[in-house]
């Protein structure tokens, strides 16, 4: 199972964290500090796996961002690499060639997409299309709600004129 997902920028800034196993606030920041120290300093050609505290951290760098997932010792590292890539492709499709800024300003969107991909540290959906469709459907629900709200407030505004 995946214990946590981290997105760290090359400068060591955290862009997304998702914890599927219980870690206290203190542990979380310690983990992030430790891992960014290890991962950001690794040379480019090395393998994408780091053994860490009896777990393995699979990471992959896309442009300026490191996507890291922590898994159990006996999990399939290559598959996790593929899951990371899967996530990146979905992000890419959603934002239209995603960049770090997209993930900063729309961090909540990145979380929503991750929630459609993983639950309880396990993969939920192998079809990019399905994920995209579900996200689009929920986004449109939000839009309609907003429009309704604004139209109601318009009506109220007009009525109270």
């Amino acid at each position: 199972m995946i214990h946590f997902v981290l997105l760290i920028s090359r400068q060591g800034k955290v862009r997304l964290t998702k914890w599927y196993s219980p870690y206290t606030q203190k542990e979380r920041s310690k983990v992030i500090r430790e891992l960014s120290g290890v991962i950001l300093t690794r040379a480019p050609k090395l393998c994408n796996f780091v053994e860490w505290r009896g777990y393995k951290v699979v990471y992959k760098r896309y442009a300026s961002l490191y996507f890291c997932m922590c898994i159990d010792e006996d999990d399939n590292e290559l598959e996790v690499l593929e899951i990371i890539h899967h996530y990146v492709e979905i992000l890419d499709r959603y934002f239209g060639s995603v960049c770090e800024l997209d993930l900063i300003f729309n961090f909540h969107k990145a979380y929503y997409i991750l929630d459609e991909l993983l639950i309880a540290g396990e993969l939920q959906e192998s079809s990019k299309k399905t994920v995209a469709r579900l996200i689009a459907a929920q986004d449109s629900l939000v839009e309609t709600a907003k429009e309704e709200a604004s139209s109601i407030s318009n009506i109220i505004a007009q009525a109270t004129k």
């Binding site: 998702k18 979380y111 929503y112 629900l141 709600a145």
Partner: peptide, 17 residues
């Protein structure tokens, strides 16, 4: 509403354990 719940659940997962 759905939008409120969506952000509420996201916050729940992020801020609490």
């Amino acid at each position: 509403g759905f939008p409120e719940k969506r952000i509420g659940y996201l916050g729940l997962m992020l801020l609490l354990d």
